[in-house]
C-alpha cells in the first residue's frame, strides 16, 4: 500500500467510526479484590492475624465483638458500560438525539475474620459472595 492510498483508508476508517461514537466503558476498583483462592491459606484455629497481614496487608477495620475481634477487609469492583445509539442518526438529525443504554454492576464485598484474644483466626467468611459483574450496557 503506497503512502497515497494509506491516507484515504485511514480517513475512511475514522469516518466509519465517528457515527458509532458514544460508547463508554469504565471501571472502579477499591483495594485488590479478594477471592476464595487468595485467602485459602487461612486455616481456622491455626493462622494468626500476623500471617494474614503479611500476605494481605493491613485490614480496613478492626472492631470488638462479643466473642473476639472482628477484622474486615473491604474491596469493590464496579463496572460500567454505556452506549448512546442516538449518535447513529446524529449526522442526519437537526437535533442532538440520545438513546442511551447503560448499566453498572457493583461487586462490593468484604472478608471478615474473627480472631481470639491471641490473634488467632477462629472464623472467616465473605460477606456477600457477589459474582464478578460484567460489562453489559443492556439494562433490561
Amino acid at each position: 500500500m503506497s503512502r497515497h492510498t494509506a491516507s484515504p483508508t485511514v480517513l475512511f476508517v475514522a469516518i466509519l467510526a465517528m457515527p458509532l461514537s458514544g460508547c463508554n466503558v469504565a471501571r472502579l476498583t477499591i483495594n485488590t479484590p479478594l477471592t476464595p483462592d487468595s485467602v485459602s491459606f487461612i486455616t481456622a484455629g491455626q493462622t494468626t492475624l500476623t500471617d494474614v497481614v503479611t500476605k494481605l496487608g493491613a485490614p480496613d477495620s478492626i472492631t470488638e465483638a462479643e466473642r473476639g475481634t472482628v477484622v474486615t477487609y473491604r474491596f469493590l469492583n464496579a463496572k460500567y458500560a454505556r452506549v448512546n445509539f442516538g449518535w447513529l442518526v446524529k449526522p442526519w438529525s437537526p437535533v442532538d438525539p440520545d438513546l442511551v443504554f447503560s448499566r453498572s454492576g457493583m461487586g462490593t464485598d468484604a472478608l471478615e475474620l474473627l480472631c481470639d484474644s491471641n490473634w488467632v483466626v477462629t472464623h472467616q467468611a465473605f460477606v456477600r459472595h457477589r459474582p464478578d459483574p460484567l460489562f453489559t450496557p443492556y439494562p433490561f
Binding site: 465517528m18 460508547c23 466503558v25 471501571r27 485488590t32 485490614p59 480496613d60
Partner: peptide
C-alpha cells in the same frame, strides 16, 4: 477515542493500626 472511551479508577489505602494497652504502651502495630 472517537469510537469509544475507556477509563479506570483505582483506589488503594495505607492503613496503620496501633493497639495501646492499659499502661499506655504500644502492644501491637499493624
Amino acid at each position: 477515542l472517537i469510537l469509544i472511551n475507556f477509563s479506570r479508577v483505582s483506589v488503594k489505602s495505607d492503613d496503620l493500626f496501633i493497639i495501646i494497652n492499659h499502661e499506655g504502651i504500644v502492644e501491637e502495630v499493624i
